[in-house]
């Protein structure tokens, strides 16, 4: 029966593992594809970079342009687009530099920190997307609700506050759903890593 006093002796009795691999087997193994978690983090992160903006590609372009013209939004939307594009490039750059830092040769803690930092970039990117969607959304609501074209369609004595509240609630709910889906993926990817990191950091 091993005890704390004799475990080192027991341990040293270990001989070669019964599944020792030959040179040929090792050679074959080293050229196989990795299925590491980092690879998944990369794939999912790239999807997350693309997905919040992918719907832009499928929008009815002419319809959108007409809509913007109708409510005098063309200029400001152009500005938003340029800013958004620059910020996306900035995020991708930061993500890429962080990703490159990940290496299996680092200390256990350093590697965990680098993986967490890489994921954090994506987290902030998602938050940024929710924020910018919120800002643009409210801006569009504001312009539309102020315009004559819109107001003409409303029955008299319409309570504008109620329209605002409903529009914001619905819009907020959509953004909340987006955030929720993201949090689930985030939790799923990093739960174990975070637990281990906390365990390593703990110093009481």
């Amino acid at each position: 029966m091993p005890t704390l006093e004799n475990i080192k002796d027991v341990w040293k009795k270990q001989e070669d593992c019964k599944y020792n691999f030959s040179k040929q087997e090792i050679f074959e193994m080293m050229h196989l594809k990795s299925s590491s978690a980092v690879k998944w983090i990369l794939i999912i992160s790239i999807l997350e970079f693309i997905l919040p903006n992918i719907f832009l590609l499928f929008f009815d372009y002419q319809g959108t342009v007409d809509f913007y013209n109708k409510y005098e939004l063309t200029g400001i939307m152009g500005v938003y687009f340029v800013i958004h594009f620059i910020i996306i490039l900035f995020f991708i750059y930061i993500f890429y530099t962080n990703y490159r830092r990940i290496s299996a040769e680092q200390s256990v803690k350093e590697l965990m920190e680098n993986i967490l930092r890489t994921r954090k970039t994506v987290k902030y990117y998602i938050y940024y997307n929710i924020a910018i969607a919120g800002v643009i959304g409210v801006h569009i609501f504001y312009k539309v609700f102020q315009s004559e074209i819109f107001l003409e369609q409303l029955p008299e004595n319409t309570n504008m506050t109620l329209i605002w509240v409903m529009a914001l609630l619905m819009f907020g709910f959509v953004l909340f759903l987006f955030w929720l889906v993201y949090r689930l993926i985030y939790g799923f990817l990093l739960r174990k890593l975070k637990l281990n990191y906390r365990e390593l950091e703990k110093t009481e």
Binding site: S36, A37, W40, S103, A104, E105, N196
Partner: peptide, 25 residues
Amino acid sequence: KFRGESKFSTWMYRVAFNTAISLYR
């Protein structure tokens, strides 16, 4: 990238632990 600054076995431990703890799915 292994430059032999540390012992091969030490380096192996590090990569092996990282794989087992953080990288291996």
